[in-house]
Design a protein around this nucleic acid. Sequence first.
DNA 1: TTAAAAATATGATATTTGTCATATTAAAGA
DNA 2: TCTTTAATATGACAAATATCATATTTTTAA
Lengths: 226, 226
Amino acid sequence: MSKCEQCIVREFSSLKALTKDELIKLSDCKTSHIIKKGEVIFEEGENVNGIYCIKDGVCKLTKLSANGKDHIVKLVTKGELLGQRSMISDEPVNLSAVALEDMQVCFIPKSEVMGYFDKNNQFSMNVMKSICGDLKEADDHMVNLAQKTVKERLAETLLYLNDTFGKNEDSSLKVQLSRDELASIIGTATESCIRLLSDFKKLGLIELTGKKIVLKDINALKKLAE
Amino acid sequence: MSKCEQCIVREFSSLKALTKDELIKLSDCKTSHIIKKGEVIFEEGENVNGIYCIKDGVCKLTKLSANGKDHIVKLVTKGELLGQRSMISDEPVNLSAVALEDMQVCFIPKSEVMGYFDKNNQFSMNVMKSICGDLKEADDHMVNLAQKTVKERLAETLLYLNDTFGKNEDSSLKVQLSRDELASIIGTATESCIRLLSDFKKLGLIELTGKKIVLKDINALKKLAE
DNA sequence: TTAAAAATATGATATTTGTCATATTAAAGA
DNA sequence: TCTTTAATATGACAAATATCATATTTTTAA
């Protein structure tokens, strides 16, 4: 079992506020898990009873809409925590988490985390700030969905994927999403997404090789995204 | 100057966790304000340096989108706090707040509130829970904007206004929004909103008298909203 | 009170986006 | 490897929504 004191990603999450003693105790009660691409970490409506700390990999947070389609609310990657909102609200999770690539995660039971809230003010503030960041992001996202066209949203999402998760050596976007998943981020039909990608390709903005997407003209994409 | 100890709306906000001593101190440092309909409480990008407690009235939180149109992110009413996110993140506010009717609000300076976070754990938890609630709402809203049609969103919004803010004696919706504002909640063009309202009227779902809207067939509206 | 401005309403039309059908290509499993 | 299945792609068309023009009504303020 790996030790939390030596875990690097801890430094990027709210957990960085924990003391040495708290970390040692944490090492004992946390459980480590390998999640394969496509596997579910938790599902909307479940009682998770703790938080997941992502050590490696990327997952999608999705919500089922009334029409039966999944919408991707957010992508989450190493250094971030999952399930905070649900734990604090003392409710089942409102989103599902599914691995987009192989992941390493640690689960910390609720009882342990709730103790930090009482004893470690800096940890509380960190969690609050992180949730506040999520809220701001959600507001921005909401306005984009309400006011921008599908084309603008696609351009913006491609740029976001590039900026947030970076590229492979062949300069293709590191996070590989199916067309279906991409469509479910920007909130459109899969066919519309495919069609617009083809348009972007014809315009020389991107290159498509199988699932791989290479951004060729960042500035033009920025202009399209407004 | 009114006393916070005796303020009823306090019981509905995170401030209910404050002790008697804290409330007496709060009464001294808070400032009360009357905001007229249409007036701005704060504007996107401003440094607010504190939070507003709404004693009476309703306001809209809006965000300017890239195309220059305002989007209404949320309606906020008595008992709720404004500016929490911005204060915790230590950033300018990301939304503007504009009164939809005459309002009474109290302003509590940041220095005072931040003290509570250190000393009063229940207050911290209350604030966290309230922000978590906002986040969950935002997620839901996002999925609706992404997946539902304008008609569905309009029906849903009318029901939401009815459930959340209630009706006048003439059974019209209490919160009066212009067609423009209604359109900017559901994320559509003003004309489309007007047209759909006319359709709903023709179908006998609602009644329109000037700005007043009466919901005539709640069940049918629920069906439309899915 | 009346003139001007703003909000609401509606028609005509263009544009965007979704849906269905059907290839084509890629991936998975026997 | 071959077969089957799933993902991607594209055309044809339908539906939803936006835009522009223009009435009509309501509100505002001179």
